[in-house]
């Protein structure tokens, strides 16, 4: 911890939480070579510039380096579809896709995504047509309060891209990083099966 006059500091304990609490297998998605393209620190303010592509649109922002990808989306870009359920890598509500892979956006700093392509729930539907997963979630009533839903959907999209889940048991296992307190799990599995059959 540095003196407050030196500006903001990182909180090392967050990273400890990552290792202990992350359930989604690829939560530690530090992009390879991230250090090499590390964003430039903007002057004395302690703020840094970051450029990343979100749902196909490039954004260049100057931010507090402690800003998580989740908070960048929600607080800076008003992309509030991505949810915060724990901010600790425990619930999956914040799941987004980074270059197609599912990650917990609360467990990563936005600056780690320099040059990356992020897909959020707002980018899942193509041109006004619901993604097959979105339609399947509606058809199977795979949500109640809807708060875990964007995370479930991004996670399911990542799951399908991974191509690892073939059986309901495998879907259950590989979707277990996304908690649904409303308990919609059986419907979530059914919805994912429907979408897998279609796509």
């Amino acid at each position: 911890m540095t003196d407050p006059e030196d500006g903001p500091t990182f909180h090392p304990t967050r990273r400890d939480v990552i290792a202990a609490g992350a359930v989604v297998p690829i939560a530690m998605a530090l992009p390879p070579g991230a250090a090499a393209q590390s964003p430039s620190v903007a002057a004395a303010s302690g703020r840094v510039a970051v450029s990343l592509t979100i749902n196909g649109t490039q954004h260049v922002l100057t931010i507090d380096p402690r800003t998580t990808l989740l908070d960048l989306l929600r607080e800076h870009l008003d992309l509030t579809g991505t949810k915060k359920g724990c901010d600790q890598g425990q619930c999956g509500a914040c799941t987004v896709l980074s270059d197609g892979r599912r990650i917990n956006s609360c467990l990563t700093f936005a600056v780690m995504f320099e040059g990356r392509h992020i897909t959020t729930i707002e980018g899942l539907a193509a041109g006004g047509t619901l993604h097959p997963l979105q339609q399947a979630f509606i058809d199977h009533d795979a949500f109640q309060c809807g708060y875990c839903t964007p995370g479930q959907l991004c996670s399911a999209a990542g799951l399908m891209a991974e191509g690892r889940a073939k059986t309901p048991d495998e879907i259950r296992e590989l979707m277990s990083g996304n908690i649904c307190r409303c308990g919609a799990y059986p419907n979530i599995v059914a919805a994912i099966q429907q979408a897998m059959g279609r796509s």
């Binding site: 509030t80 579809g81 949810k83 729930i121 707002e122 619901l130 509606i138 009533d141 809807g146 839903t149």
Partner: peptide, 21 residues
């Protein structure tokens, strides 16, 4: 009947308390 708020919930358009600016 499917939920009438279903599309909002699956597209991230449903706004919760922390999402009003």
């Amino acid at each position: 009947q499917s939920r009438i708020d279903g599309v909002k919930k699956v597209t991230g358009a449903a706004k919760y308390a922390a999402e009003f600016n």
